[in-house]
Design a protein around this nucleic acid. Structure first.
Lengths: 217, 217
DNA sequence: CTGCATTTTGACCAAGTAGTCAAGTTTTTG
DNA sequence: CAAAAACTTGACTACTTGGTCAAAATGCAG
């Protein structure tokens, strides 16, 4: 295969072999599903191994500790999860940029609810595995975007609004549809499955938030 | 003690004895703390027993199964958690009623974050213990309040807004400060502990949401 | 005080689960 | 093709944990 990694001489294996690449991906996919459903403590290696279609010792050959699988899948998820925030463009139209951001976050909640739940569960339990990430990379990124929003407010392109609380509100609301899916379904019933439901949700959420911060006059 | 329950004759004990009353309360308090921190599967009876200051078999004397403790503390919490929603007054001023509601929810998140987290964790994991409650009592209550909000919209007292999504947004945002506390702290740092932080949060949240739905003229 | 009901607990058991190991099988490489 | 490396797994161990039990301690009514 074109992607196979060739090792030279008899060197200790450094790179990733073909089989390793395949199996690690399979394991991480299975793990995301299991961990996001049952949480770290509630998931067993056997469950993940079964979903991945391999024996437990084999799985442990790739990730020697349960923690390793968890942390890896969590970190992989995190990066993807934050990308939309990073994409907010300081040069764009504020209301339009935020509309894009909210839309994207809602879409991710719809398409990858497991990722959202995995993350929510980790934070809910005190974020033992990613507190460095939160205080480091995440804080930096949020500070940066908050500065942009604050500038927008100063330029009268937005009503006076605390940028941090605005970001929290967007996160909370968009992720709610993934994290609290069962509750949303219990209350809305079959509506949730009707075509157009997600567009309608986006419309509602965007309308409240953007009207809430659009400059008046 | 005035609250002691007297048993007549040699009847099988039906009522609650003084010691039972005390100990059940102690156990439930300990259980709320433990379950809300570690989730159902992540909590052990030993942990709860230790926090309650009694032996494990003694705890099991009062609640024969781990599930029993969990369900009891969850149900106790739920009722309290919903009360503010119930208090929304159809005859009141819409914006004022919603301001009151948001304020109350934020206050509860501040004062009883464990309750919020316990609930969040349960929903996040599919609400196995309370799905009847969600589809029954909760749905009814929300439907009722949604009707009120819809009437307010019809009467032009609010901008056109989907009542269900508005309620979800309020829930998501207010509970975020309890459920995602670690993240909020990681990003805002010591601000969170400054006096007035909660008032400032309330001010920000209320301003965005209420401006978002206040009728424009 | 006396006897019965209630409460309390140390010791124990059975099930479940993370992780090990040594022996086999397959893949890669020269 | 042959040897080495990489991969796979059944069987096992050590430990945690939910729950039991019988016996001891305490509370309480008459």
């Amino acid at each position: 295969m074109a992607t196979a990694v060739k090792r030279k001489n008899g060197e200790k294996a450094e790179g990733t072999t073909r089989i390793q690449g395949i199996n690690r991906r399979i394991i991480l996919e299975a793990a995301l599903e299991v961990f996001s459903t049952y949480g770290f403590r509630g998931s067993t290696i056997d469950q993940i191994a079964e979903k991945a279609g391999m024996s437990k010792p084999n799985l442990l050959y790739y990730f020697p500790r349960k923690q390793n699988i968890y942390v890896t899948v969590l970190e992989d998820t995190l990066e993807e999860w934050l990308r939309p925030l990073d994409d907010i463009d300081p040069a764009g139209d504020p209301v339009e940029e935020l509309r894009k951001y909210i839309t994207l976050k809602l879409k991710m909640s719809e398409e990858k609810p497991e990722a959202s739940r995995l993350f929510a569960n980790e934070i809910l339990h005190g974020a033992p595995a990613i507190s460095d990430f939160l205080k480091g990379h995440l804080k930096e990124l949020v500070d940066e975007k908050a500065t942009i929003i604050r500038r927008w407010v100063d330029e009268k392109k937005l009503s006076p609004v605390d940028p941090y609380h605005l970001i929290f509100m967007i996160w909370a609301t968009t992720q709610h549809y993934a994290d609290f899916d069962v509750q949303v379904r219990a209350i809305l019933g079959s509506q949730v499955n009707r075509p157009g439901f997600h567009e309608q949700t986006a419309q509602a959420v965007i309308s409240i938030i953007l009207n809430g911060i659009r400059p008046r006059g």
